[in-house]
């Protein structure tokens, strides 16, 4: 491992300046549960680690009057699942942060870090897509260089994303999902805990007031493509249709068809495509149940 310096800035501007100065020879660190492992594996030669846990904007959960919430990029999993408002209003996020790693990892690992690590198998990204979450990004040049990117557009490949030199994820903002909305995330792993998804599905639905018709839907799959995979065909199979087994099965089939996984030590292509359909069906049903309250 290349010996790196430890920087602990207390402002976004200071963090951005450090990241801009070092370029790809520095990495921000929140929980460190991915970055330190990868640094030890010599994925990069780092001159500096920039600890972002002393920056208020990155370490806070902010609930706004309009019902939206901003989750700071360095907020660890446990703070999210111990936040009663997030439990009440965004249970699909709770599904993910309660299953990432074990208790030790959840003490440190951040949902924003899960996003920035940009693994196709990340458990945290598909539910963020299901909630139509937006990344708030700061960059060099002060306030003029802040930009927002939808979570579904954030990842560009395995381990890569849209963050440019000097840019840092400040928070993810989840809009108020409104009434008759439900979301859920589940993954398949061969163990009970502490494993990486063979496949995962994050789904959200918005039903009509009677709760018997799909008005909107999001379907995103984990670990079956180079990036968390949004499946427009599955969403289209739901929207405008009645809540029925046949409609849900059509959406599940569309998800299985859209999945384009690799075969590796965790699973085969056929298994992952099958799992994509099964998990999508289950998560649509779970999201419907939550939408109906």
């Amino acid at each position: 491992m290349h010996p790196f310096a430890y920087e602990a800035p207390t402002t976004i501007d200071a963090a951005v300046a450090l990241l801009d100065k070092h370029g790809d020879r520095a990495r921000p660190i929140a929980g460190g549960t991915d970055v330190l492992v990868q640094a030890r594996a010599n994925r990069w030669d780092l001159d500096a680690i920039v600890d972002v846990k002393n920056i208020p904007e990155l370490t806070e959960i902010s609930h706004y009057p309009d019902g939206s919430v901003a989750i700071g990029a360095a907020v660890p999993c446990y703070q999210i699942y111990e936040d009663q408002k997030i439990r009440d209003n965004f249970p699909g996020i709770i599904d993910a942060v309660e299953m990432i790693g074990g208790i030790q990892i959840q003490s440190r690992a951040a949902l924003g870090g899960n996003l920035c690590n940009s693994s196709p198998s990340a458990d945290g990204i598909c539910p963020l897509i299901a909630y139509n979450a937006v990344c708030h990004i700061a960059g060099p040049g002060g306030d003029d260089n802040h930009r927002d990117v939808a979570v579904e557009d954030f990842c560009t490949g395995p381990g890569s994303n849209v963050l440019a030199r000097g840019e840092i994820l400040v928070s993810v903002v989840l809009p108020n999902p409104g009434d008759n909305f439900g979301a859920a995330y589940e993954r398949f792993i061969p163990r009970n805990e502490m494993d990486i998804a063979v496949a995962g599905a994050g789904v959200s639905v918005k039903l009509n007031a009677a709760g018997d018709k799909f008005e909107a839907a999001r379907v995103a799959l984990a670990a079956v493509a180079p990036v968390p995979l949004v499946v427009p065909a599955a969403e289209a199979a739901l929207v405008g249709n009645s809540v029925s087994d046949d409609v849900i099965e059509a959406a599940a089939k569309a998800a299985g068809d859209a999945a384009s996984p690799i075969a590796d030590m965790r699973g085969t292509i056929d298994q992952r495509k099958h799992l994509s359909a099964v998990l999508t069906r289950r998560m649509i049903n779970q999201a419907v149940a939550r939408a109906r309250g």
């Binding site: 430890y6 602990a8 660190i29 460190g32 549960t33 330190l36 446990y78 030790q104 990892i105 440190r108």
Partner: peptide, 18 residues
């Protein structure tokens, strides 16, 4: 595993500087 400010963590994934 150690306890850091009352939360259990893997000390291999924490820097001493932190």
């Amino acid at each position: 595993t150690v306890s850091l400010d009352g939360r259990i963590v893997d000390s291999c994934l924490v820097l001493g500087a932190e």
